[in-house]
Amino acid sequence: MNVTIIFALLLAIVTVTMAVAVLIVKKIRTAVLVSGVVSLIASIIYLLLASPDVAMTEAAIGSGLTTIIFFYVLNKMRSSDV
């Protein structure tokens, strides 16, 4: 049980917990932020799996641009749980 496997296990537990939290929280702003965190941790797991190209793409696109596009659209909606 070297350090890499313990680190990967910790990251996996945090990812699955955040993914369950997306379905449970009440406000949509929190759900969008949590899905950004899931994408960021997936980028770190890609680096552990020896693929730097995919890690760079996922960090720039999945965790940066998708969250910003969500917030731009969320600004124009008035609802009880936004």
């Binding site: 997306v22 379905l23 969008v32 899905s35 899931v38 994408s39 997936a42 999945g62 909606m77």
Partner: peptide, 17 residues
């Protein structure tokens, strides 16, 4: 409908991983 879109985003992340 916004939660449905976020769930599709998580599904894409799992598939790529």
């Amino acid at each position: 409908i916004l939660r449905i879109i976020i769930a599709f985003d998580i599904f894409d992340g799992g598939l790529n991983l």
